[in-house]
């Protein structure tokens, strides 16, 4: 899959952006890239990728978000190191952007960088989140995000899931909604996430453009914390 140097992961609040962003940095890392993750989530102080800073760092992925030491502070203090990331041509940069509608707005201040360079802007969609079970609603969200960020979407991430309750049937029904939305928006479904092998249908595997994206869940509540190593996938 041909992708750009800068990937901006956006989506509705609770759509799974952070999981996708964190997993995507893993994918890039394994492909041999130097990777930086920018956490622009100023919306929600919990379950943000910055909480994984040390964990990701141990796996060679640099995370930049707020000023060091203020990770758990409710302060939208963006680090100037974000600019250093953007200016480093050798680095693949993944942006984890806060939930719509505010999150995408934060991108506005980096606008010149995105203009100068090709980027991917992906919309993570989970049709099982309230308000997004309808292709029309998803299209509206996509347009609003484009307006707020003043950037164009380049792909949809199908993250249809019901958490631990997801089964093959619900996964497929969700996908239909996402695919319909993608058709309406005239955008490709760049990634289709799955958290367990049994959720994948034979049709998925046979599909020519394989967009299957295995997702290892990181953003767990403290009582389900990540303790193990990164899983090889």
């Amino acid at each position: 899959m041909p992708t750009k140097r800068i990937t901006i992961i956006t989506g509705a609040f609770g759509s799974g952006k952070t999981e996708v962003a964190v997993n995507y940095t893993q994918l890039l890392k394994r492909a041999g890239h130097n990777v930086g993750l920018v956490d622009l989530d100023i919306v929600n102080p919990y379950f943000r990728s910055r909480e994984l800073t040390d964990f990701l760092k141990a796996h060679g992925i640099e995370v930049v978000s707020t000023q060091p030491g203020l990770e758990m502070a409710d302060l939208p203090a963006l680090s100037p190191r974000i600019f250093a990331f953007l200016q480093n041509e050798e680095l693949r940069v993944v942006f984890d952007v806060g939930g719509y509608p505010v999150g995408a707005k934060t991108l506005g201040r980096f606008e010149p960088y995105f203009r100068a360079e090709a980027y991917d802007l992906w919309l993570v969609v989970n049709p099982y989140r309230p308000g997004y079970d309808d292709p029309e609603e998803i299209s509206k969200l996509a347009q609003a995000i484009e307006a707020a960020s003043r950037l164009r979407l380049t792909g949809i991430v199908d993250n249809a899931n019901l958490g631990r309750e997801t089964d093959r049937q619900s996964r497929e029904e969700g996908s239909k909604v996402v695919e319909e939305a993608a058709r309406m928006l005239n955008l490709p479904v760049v990634l289709k996430t799955y958290t367990a092998e049994e959720l994948i249908t034979p049709a998925d595997r046979d599909r020519a453009a394989n967009n299957l994206f295995p997702l290892q869940l990181f953003m767990r509540p403290p009582w389900e914390e990540v303790t193990g190593e990164l899983r090889e996938i």
Binding site: I42, P76, L78, T106, L107, G108, R109, A148
Partner: peptide
């Protein structure tokens, strides 16, 4: 407030 205004400085 460039960040919350969504504007460059």
């Amino acid at each position: 407030c460039p960040t919350n205004w969504g504007l460059t400085p």
